[in-house]
Design a protein around this nucleic acid. Structure first.
Lengths: 140, 140
DNA sequence: CCATCTAATAGTAACGGTTACGATTTAAAT
DNA sequence: ATTTAAATCGTAACCGTTACTATTAGATGG
């Protein structure tokens, strides 16, 4: 997934091209880490001082629906990142300070031997949390 | 962990005995599943019509700090359950409708072969989500 | 048993992240 | 250029959670 692919996909699905959408996508493409709605607002406020949360959340939600972004929830806040190049199912090691991620090879579902048959399984979540080296040094 | 052990622990830590605390603990002991603050309010509102969220959240947080309750966050909402009898580290299969859980044997961290050394790992989360048989039948 | 001290609580306001709404603007099709 | 529907802004509403003040109520020690 890259910015122009994402824009093509949007167009194909009937969404319009706007500079704000392009710049949001470019931001995620550049950062390659989990960002919050607030992060997006902060990053784009120079070019779009009045950018509203309605716009941000609506676009984030659209992008996520189209699998342009991956979504998770950390510490009560929604976070989004550009969909990883690895097309296959994968999990993440996540820096809780900056949202930087590292892909984890294994999926734990493969090793589950417990009987799950009395539930209809709809999904799972496996995330490892930590602090990356850069954030470790930048003690606040 | 049971109600009287929990109450002893509270006393030992300098917390006072109140009927509200006992009844909250009894609720979790009876239900053995993930409950939200709202669930607690609903369950106790007959006996304590004016039970305030301040009280509920403060007690939930205290119980969680003392490992009387296990805590997680599902769909943007904090959920608590009585600490499982299994003292060891474990994970859960969780019904997203009623909070019922089933313990999962394996911890995925044991099978991670990726190099994690460029992060200081502080924690991880592995949860399997689904719908239990009872909720599957009680279609709303 | 009472006085005292401190924790616990109710009622309610504040808070932070998210969603929703009406009016307006704008992309893009004709 | 005109038209139409999507996108956006500004803002209010919403929801779960936290915080504040005044009041109530366990616990302790005389």
């Amino acid at each position: 997934m890259d910015v122009s692919t994402a824009i093509d996909l949007l167009k194909r699905k009937g969404y319009k091209y706007t500079d704000k959408r392009k710049d949001m996508l470019q931001l995620f493409s550049d950062e390659k880490r989990y960002l919050s709605a607030k992060d997006v607002q902060d990053s784009l406020k120079e070019n779009y001082p009045g950018l509203s949360f309605d716009t941000i959340y609506r676009n984030l939600s659209t992008f996520s629906d189209l699998d342009i972004l991956e979504e998770t929830e950390l510490e009560g806040e929604k976070k989004f990142r550009f969909t990883c190049p690895t097309r296959e199912h994968h999990h993440h090691l996540i820096c809780l300070k900056c949202g930087k991620t590292k892909e984890i090879n294994a999926c734990p579902m493969e090793n589950v031997t417990s009987d799950l048959s009395d539930f209809t399984v709809t999904g799972h979540k496996f995330e490892i949390y930590g602090v990356c080296q850069v954030c470790e040094l930048n003690v606040v």
